[in-house]
Nucleic acid binder design. Structure first.
Length: 748
DNA sequence: GGACTTGAACTTTTT
DNA sequence: GTTCAAGTCC
């Protein structure tokens, strides 16, 4: 028994062995959070406090869930197969499949990913003839998901204006459409499961009784609905053990609600918060930087990381001339670290947004430095895989219109826009799916063929009839086959293999298609289930898992978001410029800057030993050269842990930072104390613009007029001289960033 | 149906 | 500067 606990520090041990109570563990970066969670589960089982069957453990990513299962099985000789360990969506799926009838779902319901959902929305907009300028598909999608996230069905959404009324109408049609097709989107998985628990007392009580221990990882990332779901699954007898770090909450934009931590404390009567503050990852200087930076955030629970190790190296700061220079610098440093014995895979280059990877990749490619970019197209998102999955979906659930539309004419079989339109009209008039319409068309064609003795054999191989025959044939042949063989047969009979074989650059795609068979093989082996429906659910829920090209030693490139949870020997944090990091879009969002700062905190705490911070004085952005000042976050790091690699530029850079900071404070003060119209026009901050012979002086608060956008007021600026851009809040046209060189702004 | 042009937009991301 | 969708032409 004691071996389970060996090496745990007092706080970790306390968390692991907590009695049957609800508890909140505030686990800082690198404090052994996953270890605490898995050891606690092992401890509960080993000491007979709970059987594996009575434990529910929730994570956010499949990766984390898998990791948890692996660790549990190394700690205990038990079969983790049947345990309820998984993602919110995965567990909801599991619950809905088990109670599909009570949840009002078909046994073979399919899961829409975001892209599928978007195409359903597009289709509906088209069908209803809605102006997609006024109602952009993405916004409609966002509206629907948001409503579901609030737990609201269309009838419950507040119709406060005409615009919202229209959106609600679209929401209603969308729901009907999904119902008809037996498909559910990601948000629906959660909402349905939530409603199931609310409405079906017997089921709710069953799970409440069953799960005596509920454990939640990354609790700061839970959304409102997820929190409500957890509350439904538990009662005063359950022990809910949540682990999280409010300082690492970086997903507010997708519904994460840090407030859940405070609510949890209250709702679950948490008497004491356990803080894990000892960090086993980074050297002192790095932690010092991170701690000082995050103290600038006002809304936080508060904790301070410390290490038993020494200070280590100072953080290196590099001020690059431009983005290319920055990339070259990183390239050289990586090379030199490599000769000192650091593996490439132990070095990571982090950036705020994906677009920044291009320049870096270019430099690494030219230097023949092996690198790997995370966050590209994922396996199950590839075009050819989507096509193959669409065939499988139609086999499993023919009413899936999305899937049908994707493949009805792929590979080409002579079904053009006209026949499709006809089919859609027919389906609409019958109130059924496209497949149902195609089937009735097929049947009437068959009977008329018999009557007229018109037996041209070619006719049935083309067009809609051909498609129906094809699907029926495949479905029949598949009835008794195991999953991998179904896929193999489908790939061949559908014509996908022939198509990609003939395609000039189809070799990779062909390989991916065969890889799909492999994926099915390992699915059958691991999950011990070869039902097609389950495999399709797995494909939708684990779109990211199947990454290729892992294994070889390569430099790691990724956004700061995707670096969360990872650690490296050396980290290069690039693009530390105002507008980029913090991102300019965050300036106008409530709590935006604090979220950016947490993101910075996550970035800093990824490094074990070496941390490089770099910014470029000039950079190509949106096709324009931008001169942004160094990030304010750089100034929030204490000087004594920094080592500037170009001492000459220290002065200038630091001054620039303070200048921006002053301007912002001034701006914020003015904004908070006065309305925009009353801004003090005498504000001292100004940018000079030298445009031909005219020289204008621009300052924050200045009224301006634009040829197209009309009258507005300057609320922010960046850069200087010819490259300067100003942010203008127009009376009618909204807020825009404009280049002074091109925008033809006139002061009034 | 496929190749081409044009125009607008343009964080972060898992499920 | 690059992508992605919609429109245009053969």
């Amino acid at each position: 028994m004691s071996s389970l606990f060996s090496g745990l520090n007092p706080e970790q041990l306390e968390a692991v062995t907590l009695p049957h109570l609800s508890a909140l563990v505030l686990a800082g970066a690198g404090s052994g959070k996953t270890r605490v969670l898995t050891t606690r589960i092992a401890h509960l089982i080993q000491s007979n406090f709970a059987s594996p069957h009575e434990i529910l453990a929730v994570t956010f990513t499949n990766k984390a869930a898998k990791e948890m299962l692996t660790r549990i099985s190394t700690l205990l000789p038990i079969n983790t197969q049947g345990m309820w360990v998984g993602t919110f969506h995965g567990l909801c799926n599991r619950m809905l499949r088990a109670h599909c009838q009570d949840a009002g779902l078909s046994r073979t319901f399919q899961i829409l990913d975001s892209a599928d959902q978007l195409s359903v929305v597009r289709r509906i907009l088209k069908k209803l003839g809605v102006d997609d300028e006024k109602f952009p598909p993405r916004q409609v999608q966002w509206f629907i998901n948001n409503a579901k996230e609030e737990g609201l069905r269309a009838s419950k959404v507040d119709a406060r204006d005409d615009f919202t009324r229209k959106l609600i109408e679209l929401y209603v049609v969308y729901e009907q459409q999904c119902e008809r097709e037996s498909v559910v989107d990601f948000a629906e998985l959660l909402l349905r499961s939530y409603e199931l628990l609310i409405n079906q007392e017997i089921i709710r009580e069953h799970y409440r009784k069953r799960f005596s221990h509920v454990l939640v990882d990354e609790f700061q990332d839970t959304s409102r609905l997820q929190y409500k779901w957890l509350k439904l699954l538990t009662n005063e007898k359950s022990a809910v053990f949540v682990v999280g770090d409010d300082d690492q909450s970086i997903y507010a934009f997708r519904g994460a609600n840090t407030g859940n931590m405070k609510d949890f404390e209250r709702d679950f009567h948490v008497s004491k918060i356990i803080k894990l503050e000892q960090n086993y990852r980074s050297h002192g200087n790095i932690l010092n930087a991170a701690n000082t930076l995050i103290c600038n955030n006002k809304s936080r629970i508060g904790k301070n990381l410390w290490t038993a190790e020494g200070d280590g190296e100072p953080l290196r700061v590099y001020s690059a001339q431009n983005d290319l220079d920055e990339a070259t610098f990183i390239c050289n440093e990586v090379r030199s670290l490599q000769t000192k014995g650091v593996m490439l895979s132990q070095m990571a280059v982090l950036y705020r947004s994906n677009a920044q990877s291009r320049v870096l990749e270019h430099a690494f490619f030219n230097a023949s430095l092996a690198y790997r970019v995370y966050g590209g197209t994922r396996f199950f998102d590839r075009q050819e895989i989507k096509h193959a999955l669409a065939y499988l979906r139609i086999i499993a659930n023919p009413d899936d219109d999305n899937a049908l539309l994707r493949i009805i004419n792929f590979p080409v079989r002579g079904i053009g826009t006209r026949s499709l339109e006809q089919l859609q009209i027919e389906a609409a008039s019958q109130g059924g799916s496209l497949w149902a319409a195609a089937l009735s068309k097929f049947q009437s064609a068959m009977s008329s063929k018999l009557l007229s003795k018109n037996n041209e054999s070619n006719r049935s191989k083309k067009g809609i009839e051909g498609f129906v025959t094809l699907i029926q044939t495949i479905r029949q042949s598949c009835a008794k086959l195991p999953l991998p063989e179904i896929i193999q047969l489908m790939l061949k009979d559908s014509g996908l293999v022939a198509y990609y074989h003939a395609e000039r650059e189809g070799a990779d795609r062909l390989e991916n298609l065969y890889e799909l068979i492999n994926a099915a093989n390992s699915f059958v082996y691991e999950i011990e289930d070869d039902s097609l429906t389950e495999f399709l659910a797995h494909a939708s829920l684990e779109a990211g898992e199947h990454q290729t090209g892992i294994g070889s030693d390569a430099l790691q490139l990724m956004t700061v978001h995707s670096a969360k949870g990872l650690e490296f020997h050396s980290v290069f944090l690039s693009g530390l410029e105002e507008g980029l990091f913090p991102h300019e879009r965050s300036y106008n969002e409530i709590g935006g800057l604090e979220e950016e700062r947490r993101l910075m905190y996550v970035a800093l705490t990824r490094a074990r030993q070496l941390l490089y911070l770099s910014f470029a004085q000039a950079r190509m952005l949106h096709g324009q050269i931008c001169r942004n000042s160094p990030s304010r976050f750089l100034q929030e790091i204490p000087d004594n842990v920094l080592k500037w690699l170009q001492p000459l530029q220290v002065q200038g850079a630091k001054q620039q930072v303070s200048k921006i900071k002053r301007a912002e404070n001034e701006f914020e003060n003015t904004i908070s104390s006065t309305s925009i119209e009353e801004l003090d026009l005498g504000t001292q901050t100004r940018v000079l613009s030298t445009k031909n012979q005219e020289i204008f002086q621009w300052y924050i608060g200045q009224n301006v007029v634009h040829v197209k956008f009309g009258i507005g007021i300057i609320i922010n600026y960046e850069g200087s001289n010819a490259d300067a851009r100003v942010q203008v809040k127009f009376n009618r046209a909204g807020t825009k960033w404009l280049s002074l060189e091109y925008a033809k702004l006139l002061p009034i």
